[in-house]
């Protein structure tokens, strides 16, 4: 089977400081990879390099595009990369405000990606928006409301709908449950789990919360000071951590 994403030797420096270095892995269709680490571990830098938000200093990020097979997105032209990020890729930001247009209605937010790929029938766009709002458990009568009128959890779910409406194959998530109330987090994780399964999505999820990775990720990469210090099956890395830092991380989690 061809990997959906082949990452080779990604590195990003901030002057003399290491953002992330020597990161390589293959991600297959339907796989969810968690990237954990504490602040400063380089996990967000890595995610942004992979998603095309940052230019890495070295390495390749090869994505299996529908039309042209494996292409290195780092060397891709900007128009192509932007097109990719509107269709086959999705990015869920930690703060919904960064991933939504706050002055556009929920329906408009969800419909934007469709309109960006030339959907030109208002009725059809609206129907699809209603369908997706339903899938993220936002009631259809809120379709004309602005996200400013939504709670944090609803904004995050709207962000997810906006991203998934074009059926992307790869989703990047940056602390998707960060800043949300615990019960709201729970609901969001359930939703993500269901959608990932239903749509056969591949995902790369950056988080500092080990419970999130246990719930969502098949595989895990642990980062510290810009390096990947351990990786493998999620339950294996968490139940039988090998590296000193991983052991520290796992033992620090409160068991409730």
């Amino acid at each position: 089977m061809t990997p959906l994403l082949q990452v080779e030797g990604i590195a990003k420096m901030y002057g003399a400081r290491i953002g992330c270095t020597d990161v390589s892995f293959d991600l297959f269709p339907g796989e969810v990879m968690g990237v954990v680490g504490e602040s400063g571990s380089g996990k967000s830098t890595l995610l942004n390099c992979l998603a095309g938000h940052l230019q890495p200093d070295a390495g390749a990020v090869c994505f299996d595009t529908r039309a042209e097979g494996l292409r290195d997105t780092v060397t891709m032209s900007e128009p192509e990369r932007r097109m990719l990020s509107r269709t086959d890729w999705a990015f869920v930001h930690q703060h919904a405000r960064d991933g939504l247009r706050m002055n556009v209605s929920a329906g408009g937010n969800v419909g934007e990606r469709l309109m960006a790929v030339n959907a030109r029938h208002y009725g059809e766009i609206r129907d699809k928006a209603i369908d997706w709002l339903g899938r993220v458990e936002i009631s259809a009568d809120r379709i004309d409301d602005r996200p400013t009128a939504f709670s944090g959890g609803m904004q995050q779910r709207l962000q997810i709908a906006r991203n998934l409406v074009t059926g992307p194959r790869l989703v990047f998530m940056d602390e998707p449950t960060g800043g949300l109330d615990v019960s709201v987090q729970a609901r969001l994780l359930d939703l993500l789990r269901g959608l990932v399964r239903e749509m056969g999505l591949s995902a790369i999820i950056v988080t500092h919360d080990l419970a999130v990775v246990r719930l969502l990720a098949d595989r895990l990469m642990v980062m510290k000071d810009g390096h990947v210090i351990e990786s493998g099956l999620t339950d294996q890395v968490l139940d039988d951590p090998q590296h000193a830092y991983t052991q520290l991380l796992v033992s620090s989690v409160l068991q409730v």
Binding site: V104, S105, G108, G111, R113, V117, R120, R126, D144
Partner: peptide, 18 residues
């Protein structure tokens, strides 16, 4: 420059919905 005009139609969509 990239001919990314989806947002323009969002404006029209908003009009119709409102």
């Amino acid at each position: 420059s990239l001919e990314e005009y989806g947002l323009m139609h969002v404006k029209l969509y908003e009009d119709i919905s409102q």
